[in-house]
Design a protein around this nucleic acid. Sequence first.
DNA 1: GCCGCACTAGCACGAGTGTGCTAGAAAGGG
DNA 2: CCCTTTCTAGCACACTCGTGCTAGTGCGGC
Lengths: 200, 200
Amino acid sequence: MPRTLDKQARKAQLAEAVWDVITDLGIAAVSVRSVADRAGVVVGSLRHVFPTRTDLVTFSAELMVQRVQQRLAATERTDDPRVDAVEQLRHLLPLTEQTRVEFEVTIALIAESVAEPALTEIRDVAHADLSRLCTELAERLTGRPRDENTERAGRRLHALVDGLAMQLLHQADEVDGEWAVAMVREEVDNLYRTRELGEH
Amino acid sequence: MPRTLDKQARKAQLAEAVWDVITDLGIAAVSVRSVADRAGVVVGSLRHVFPTRTDLVTFSAELMVQRVQQRLAATERTDDPRVDAVEQLRHLLPLTEQTRVEFEVTIALIAESVAEPALTEIRDVAHADLSRLCTELAERLTGRPRDENTERAGRRLHALVDGLAMQLLHQADEVDGEWAVAMVREEVDNLYRTRELGEH
DNA sequence: GCCGCACTAGCACGAGTGTGCTAGAAAGGG
DNA sequence: CCCTTTCTAGCACACTCGTGCTAGTGCGGC
């Protein structure tokens, strides 16, 4: 086998360049040339890994979803389901530089998905996963099996987190966003309280 | 004065063509040519009204915000603040073809605003207006003057509506979305209940 | 009538786009 | 050593883009 490079690392490097361009110049500025420049690579090399622009942007979308899910899975568990829930949901809010980038990129990809069918599927899967997570959290918090109540609670939690994310995006970077976390905690505590009600 | 056309109507016609293109092909496909084609007008005519692309898209953003606010203002009042609140908030959810278009366009404009500073301002103003509406609704529902409690309730309401909108967008067109309205109603009823608590 | 301006129609240019293609460089296996 | 395969580098083509510009067209006012 002749000279071979770490293809996964190269792909990740290019995907990160895509995110850079999106946050700096917007999704419209994402072209094979701009991304190659940003990654410090010539167009030919980029196209050796991603033959078309669609390949490039769909991969960066997939990697983004994957990264978020890894982070979600990596939050360690405690014996208090409330703490766990808040800790996981916190990772979905644009509170840090990283999560802020993630959210901006997500918005851009949603906007682009009208023209790029492959993105629609990625987005749908990610959304369904998030929805499932929220429902599971609701089950764990209330201590009840899945029924229409826990499902509704899960959807509500999901909506709250998405809406708070939207609001944090409109808020300047330096302003503190812990009020949003407090609001999530409140919702989580409310769900937990119904469990205590049932146990009594 | 030589031959003169209704400039406002022409601008609106072109703005609607912009929305059409966004929902069909995505924001990336919005060009002076595609929009002129969609509106059944030659590029020269479009450019007589909107000299640059930026003028075109900022105006369509402004018109969109204006339309939504007109509809909000046009919802007639009853003597029950709960009914009023739900009726107004319903207009912010992508439940009909029209509101669905509005939401998709909003997403597209958010994505584009990274590259187009004028859009950022429009978006910020619209978001602040919506935030104010939600706070006012919270005040009216609880029957309390503005304080940190009603403000938090307003933010919560706002987040819920935005999040539900996001979820409805991911839901196929034909599926019923009244569950989201029910969730809004639930939240509104909860706020109203704290008023009864205070009155007792 | 006919003058003047709002409007229509479209050409032209330079820049940027995605992608097909080819030629060279580099590195591991024989 | 050389040979094969991966990767790099870049040219070329057809196309779209925004915008500057000019020539025509038709209507309202005099």
